[in-house]
Design a protein around this nucleic acid. Structure first.
Lengths: 238, 238
DNA sequence: TAGTGGTCTAGACCACTGC
DNA sequence: CAGTGGTCTAGACCACTAA
């Protein structure tokens, strides 16, 4: 697998920022210098620098140069596409996933509306709760179109469905849309969560699309109020 | 003010998508065709198409072409950097901003920590509530470093501080970091909001940076539970 | 004024798609 | 196979910043 030149340069510069060769508030070499150092064209350097900028590692300023940002401050997951397993590992807390339901169903109206599935097609329905430090604080309801995900097992659901989808099935996730709001607790919430007396949950609805822009997953994630936290990083497009 | 060529093309294509000249699931003309139509180079066309893609209007697929996505589904503000005034206009609902406090203060520890201001410097403190359809449902607490914003008036605060900052002061907002979580209501919330019996609020903390990566504003936005809603659109970077 | 990043051009070759 | 988007080049001119 050959790596693109601009990606290689991006990774090399990122490594130097992480190692401290370039410190926060340092200026990177100019684009002309970099294109000589890496023996490439300036446009290719610019692609690498724009990636660094989009990911929050540098700030480009016209007429001045590219400044290294304080990595610690901005190094958080890009919002939206991080799985529970990755999150749990990042937080370094004991975490567990409990599979309550795993079945193939005919979509009801609610799912059909969200997944836009013809009503004779079948979908996977997975209900899991997520336990952190002994408390079940997240209820995940996932629906996958069976056309894309032929087989799901309890083991896969307890590990990471995302890993399975990307690594085993080699489906390419392209983008996701999220909606967040607060909802009253339902009987299902009471059944599967340690609610600790709260009467509301934060609901995160997640619509996941593949590379060809087809919607293949719909997830509703219900979080206990006190444990919900979301971080977002937005760069202005002028 | 001259518009960039690639921006002009972006806007033109966007208009045609909005008007329905290009329908969802249509393929756009190929990059070569477009570069002839617009009498420009292919790289410039690519910049326009990449913008459309980043904003969720099209999906580019190697070897096939660029597909128009369902606009209605994805046409929402890019998360993070939309002001209340813009939002209110978009929703077409009667909205009002009420300024409760507007003063210059020595930063206390809480602000100092978030704005990273030396403790002898002064900051603007603005407390406003946002009323929609007659109900005060958002409490905004803004802090600006006085170094960047020398003057603030009640009129500016009732209109849009963002507009004032960008258009009058010509400060360039570059990126923002958001944190969201749920908090118990405070006395301040009770005083300034119509809480409708709710005991919690959704808190959105917003850290806004200028083009030179200096943090110049810190905002805490407290939303009544039932009226909070957030939409996020994330494109995966492979 | 010299140096920076932002835009733009007219080519080129590649990997992938569909027929 | 022809056509598509992805990468890359070696130039050019511009707007902005700082000395």
């Amino acid at each position: 697998m050959k790596e693109n030149k601009f990606l290689a340069i991006y990774n090399d510069l990122l490594l130097q920022i992480r190692k401290g060769t370039f410190q926060p508030n340092d200026k990177l070499p100019s684009e002309n210098e970099l294109s000589q150092q890496y023996q490439t064209s300036r446009e290719t350097i610019r692609k690498a620098l724009n990636l660094l900028s989009e990911h929050g590692y540098i700030q480009k300023i016209k007429g001045k140069g590219s400044i290294v940002l304080d990595v610690g401050k901005y190094d958080f997951p890009v919002s939206g596409l991080v799985s529970f397993k990755e999150l749990a590992q990042k937080m370094r807390k004991p975490a567990r996933t409990i599979v309550h339901e795993l079945e193939i169903v005919k979509p009801d109206e609610y799912i059909r509306k969200h997944l836009s599935v013809p009503n004779k097609d079948e979908v996977w329905k997975v209900i899991r709760s997520r336990e952190i430090e002994g408390e079940k604080i997240i209820l995940d309801k996932d629906f996958f179109h069976r056309k894309f995900v032929p087989l799901l097992t309890r083991d896969i659901c307890e590990d990471s469905i995302y890993e399975y989808i990307e690594k085993e099935l080699k489906l390419k996730i392209s983008f996701a849309k999220k909606e967040m709001f607060v909802d009253q607790v339902t009987d299902e919430d009471r059944k599967y969560l340690d609610l600790n007396g709260y009467e509301h949950v934060v609901v995160v609805k997640n619509f996941v699309y593949l590379e060809d822009a087809s919607l293949f997953q719909f997830t509703e994630s219900r979080h206990r109020l006190d444990k919900f936290r979301f971080v977002d990083f937005a760069r202005r497009t002028h």
